[in-house]
Design a binder for these strands. Structure first.
Lengths: 349, 349
DNA sequence: AATAGTGACTTTACCGGTTTAGCGGCGGCT
DNA sequence: AGCCGCCGCTAAACCGGTAAAGTCACTATT
């Protein structure tokens, strides 16, 4: 294929064709007052005939705004592929961006330092008008960096992690408590949790909430393991938890995402334990995956798409200077399915 | 948080501080010859002190190039979330883009018309320097549109679908044939396939290849179902295939992605059929998911990350005018695991 | 000694829009 | 009639860079 030496039609050509100045074309395309309807129509007709669309690069240079927001995700590719959360989140964000003809600049980064550098480059390079920050950690360096830059941003994470940034979060502590309370109500006394990546702030929050709930309910202890969110890690953790002799073996396990719960289910079956007879399993996030297993997985479910949309809307608020309030999205709710039941129902599968 | 009225440091400030002209600063930052080391150092020092980074918008306006490539994905959000393919593909693309400090503009679109409009807007708006096109269909309107625009692009799909566009593809026909041959070699005579979305070109190709292979091997027929790639659809299809009475029931099923295979596995178990005893299952793509089930899923596996990287590299070739050749990536290879075995081993689980 | 060549910069003309100041003409008001 | 104010539009400055042409001092060549 030979690349045609593109004709490069610019605003000047359109202006010439419509018999007006380029200022007039600009006014027409930005729906600003000051033009008669007749002229406006002539301009649009000319533009259509020439197949012209404004050069957004030039536009943002002179108008000092860009219709692009950034999203950098800092997790190993290996985990990302399977984590249904992100794609759904992104699709929620997209939905809102699209309505405002805004685009998403996506980048996967290897660590937070890289992300800080990237956000700075994006912002100083005037490539984005704001950014969505995810996966906060304790003392996250992005908080200070973003403040210093004065860049509009929305932090996805609990306010205790996101400093002065506008944030949107899920109330993980409450959700964890509900999960534990539910299992306890079923009669479980030995409940374990297979958590996510330890450095992540929300993991810490869930861990603390789990401990707290276990204590409050007077449970037999509080087994928790940190993983990297991968299925393999979830399988390993489950294997280790379930290989304890029955009196010490947990009768219920809560997972921090779907993948690990699926992996856990498979480990239980591989070890000859029935679910939920010998052990109850509770997943988190509740993607489609939870309904594809046998038994189906009970889960703490969550409107991830809506979460993304909310975050995007909030970001627009920040960008336009409305100073929207930080707020939580609806707390995940328990969706009981086939993987949870009172303990000791024990029939082999 | 009060947004600081950003100081707006420009190339002029840096030039002034370093005591040179802005042309010199430009030369320094673009690593072009014509400056003494001493001056270069002074410039960098000045830039560092002022915290300056070039305005990429201005740069691309005058240099006529942008370091951004586009990717529009046209699938319902619901499917995307779970489809491990895309995130892995994207991460492969990203890896290559990052080395060249290039960014990815991502957009989810609802239909091809929208995508055509988007690509045109992106290109005419000089927002991207090229695009990656995925999920081709027969008579795909994007082929003509992209040619008309003269936009550099790489099509992910078989050349029979992508017209004159440079393309990178997986040899699905060969892979399907291998899958069928393998199952036939195990002794299966009644093999079914749960395919992906019918309008997609690669689905058509696989369907034809499956028919062909079934005929060549003299199999008992060729059951194929089209779905939408979702787990639910995979489950429904499997349920329908397996509910035939034993002489007509397939003894092996090939799936077009992992999710559907996982769903199929669960349906088999729900119907009291053992895998691989009563029915063998073969997945496609081979994400982590295949190793998390019980039994583990045999799959046609595929270096999706590498695929993405290859596509990105090829796109750079097209952009720089090297006219790279269209080429296939390595054909998926069979990875036998626990879900495939000779038919009739039939012990209940 | 005159000429050519080179290295190190500077000057200046864009890139393709947006934006603001300005301007001619026309209707309304006094 | 004269002045004002507004409408509809144009001209020109500007956004922050890049790139090509120009300048100038200094060395090498003949």
């Amino acid at each position: 294929m030979t690349t045609v030496p593109t004709p490069r039609v610019t605003i000047k050509d359109v202006a010439a064709r419509a018999g007006v100045s380029k200022g007039a074309v600009s006014l027409a395309f930005n729906r600003k007052p000051g033009l008669s309807d007749a002229t406006r129509d002539r301009i649009f007709a000319a533009a259509r005939e020439l197949g012209w669309a404004p050069n957004l690069t030039a536009r943002s240079l002179s108008s000092q705004r860009v219709d692009v927001v950034g999203l950098a995700i800092c997790r190993p590719a290996k985990q990302l592929g399977l984590e249904p959360f992100y794609m759904e989140f992104i699709s929620g964000v997209e939905g809102v961006l699209t309505e405002r003809s805004c685009s998403l600049l996506l980048r996967l980064v290897r660590n937070l330092e890289e992300e800080v550098g990237l956000q700075e480059a994006w912002w100083k390079g005037k490539q984005i008008s704001g950014s969505i920050l995810v996966d906060f950690r304790a003392d996250d360096p992005r908080v200070a960096a973003v403040e210093r830059l004065g860049m509009p941003a929305v932090a996805v994470g609990h306010p205790s992690l996101t400093g002065s940034l506008t944030s949107v979060w899920t109330d993980d502590a409450t959700a964890v408590a509900e999960a534990v309370r539910y299992l306890a109500a079923l009669g479980h006394r030995r409940i374990a949790r297979v958590g996510g990546a330890a450095p992540l702030g929300h993991t810490t929050i869930r861990t603390a909430a789990f401990d707290e709930a276990a204590r409050t309910l007077g449970l037999a202890g509080s087994w928790q393991v940190a993983t990297d969110f991968s299925g393999d890690a979830g399988a390993r953790a489950t294997r280790s938890l379930l290989s304890a002799a029955p009196p010490d073996r947990p009768t219920a396990i809560v997972y921090d995402n779907d993948i690990m719960a699926v992996a856990g289910l498979s480990v239980a079956s591989e070890m000859g334990l029935s679910v939920p007879g010998d052990v109850s399993l509770l997943a988190w996030d509740d993607s489609q995956l939870c309904r594809l297993t046998h038994p189906t997985l009970s889960a703490m479910s969550h409107d991830v798409h809506g979460f993304g949309a909310d975050v995007a809307r909030t970001l627009f608020g920040v960008i336009t200077g409305e100073e929207p309030a930080s707020h939580p999205v609806p707390t995940p709710v328990l969706t009981p399915r086939g993987s949870t039941a009172p303990p000791g129902g024990g029939s082999r599968m």
